[in-house]
Design a binder for these strands. Structure first.
Lengths: 226, 226
DNA sequence: GTGGGCCGTGAGGAAAACGTGAGGACGGCC
DNA sequence: GGCCGTCCTCACGTTTTCCTCACGGCCCAC
């Protein structure tokens, strides 16, 4: 379970880091809003803990930035108790709001409550289609015809995972590019053509006429299990 | 959006009832834990707001009872600020925890945050009419007669989406042209004739006599679900 | 009637988007 | 250094999408 913690106070950052590391989280930290967005794009955290009062790029900006491409749970920490701040943050897309000072036990419990909602998605993390069986958790692809293992590279996994998590739904090029290569490559549609082809070569029965990794010209791609 | 409010204090119950009714929620109330479980089973609420300090069946018991069969979002209200209570409630399966006294604005925002996360997971994000089922989120059209997928292009989706979010209302040519092709094409009504035809071919049972994508001569078009 | 809007229909070509093949840059590893 | 896997660049053929153009029908005003 990977957690991104963003706070401009190094002391709090360090304290939270220790707390979550002790609870077996994989911790990524950021000292300001811009860094938070950058690190989120790099690391794909399972949950984001965000201090609202950061200089330059505010917490609200970061929420908007994240929500532009991701549904990752966001927990906001703030020193201000104003109702208006809470409402603003929650309506911007945050999932929970905690005011300082807070007890670490409570913070941990709230983070557990937020991540718990996501887990059921992960349980059904495999799919069998065409001639292959894909397991997203085990990161394995097995050909059902002869039981051979098929190897996917890191980039291929990230792309396939994004498509499979949204099985049946159209996933726009923007979302795919942001999830796999980061927001700075949002216009590099050539990457998609290249790696979709790779995935088709490895997963489709007839890569020339794909049945599961479908193109929707001008919009994006769609994974259909059946 | 249906909300179940459970509190043993009739005054609070009444106040919350008024607040949520005013925000267009469909409100169901319960005065104790047993009633809460009973009414939840009857009404299948979209969210549950639960006072922790109820007599007989406590809030924690109600959470356990609900979680036995449902994943409905649960927001807990409590007069006790003890960290131990919060942790217990959250780990029992609650999704959020608010301590009295609280501001109604904040409570409303938290309820919005909880229900928002559920919506995209729901299957029902589109409309069924004629022989097709349209899902705007998944960007999919399925013919109900034989289950075949119907493919729409980017422009067709944009036009259909504009009409569907204004279901039942007349949408002027100017608005459609601006939304789909941009303000510079506000006079190109030929685009509309072309793409409305495409949509009718793909969605209407008898494209010659449309029943859902209706022309209003000289004004615009109207989408009617039934 | 009849002429002018307005709308629906049909076909076809330009442009955008996509798929494909070959190969170079880079870093890890022996 | 040489090998290998991975990622990315570039050029070119193919498919899909979008838009243009021409024509016919309907309705209402005159």
């Amino acid at each position: 379970m990977k957690i991104l913690i963003a706070d401009d106070d190094p002391q709090i950052l360090r304290a939270l880091s220790i707390t979550f590391t002790a609870s077996d989280y994989d911790v990524v930290t950021a000292g300001d809003g811009a860094a938070a967005l950058r690190r989120a794009a790099e690391h794909h955290p399972d949950i984001v803990v965000l201090d609202l009062g950061m200089p330059q790029l505010s917490g609200i900006d970061v929420i908007h930035g994240l929500r532009g491409y991701s549904t990752v749970p966001i927990l906001v920490i703030s020193g201000r108790m104003d109702s208006i701040d809470k409402v603003q943050a929650l309506d911007a897309g945050a999932d929970d709001y905690v005011t300082k000072p807070f007890l670490t036990d409570e913070l941990l419990a709230r983070v557990r409550a937020l991540t718990r909602r996501r887990l059921p998605l992960r349980e059904e993390s495999g799919a069998t289609f065409g001639d292959v069986r894909v397991d997203l958790v085990a990161r394995s692809v097995v050909r059902t015809t002869d039981g051979a293992d098929i190897h996917l590279t890191r980039t291929e996994w990230r792309l396939l995972e994004t498509l499979m998590v949204n099985a049946g739904r159209l996933v726009t090029q923007e979302i795919l590019l942001t999830e796999v290569w980061g927001p700075q490559h949002i216009r590099d549609t050539g990457y998609l053509r290249l790696y979709i082809r790779q995935l088709r070569k490895k997963l489709e029965r007839d890569p020339g006429t794909p049945r599961h990794l479908l193109t929707e010209a001008g919009m994006g791609y769609r994974f259909v299990p059946e």
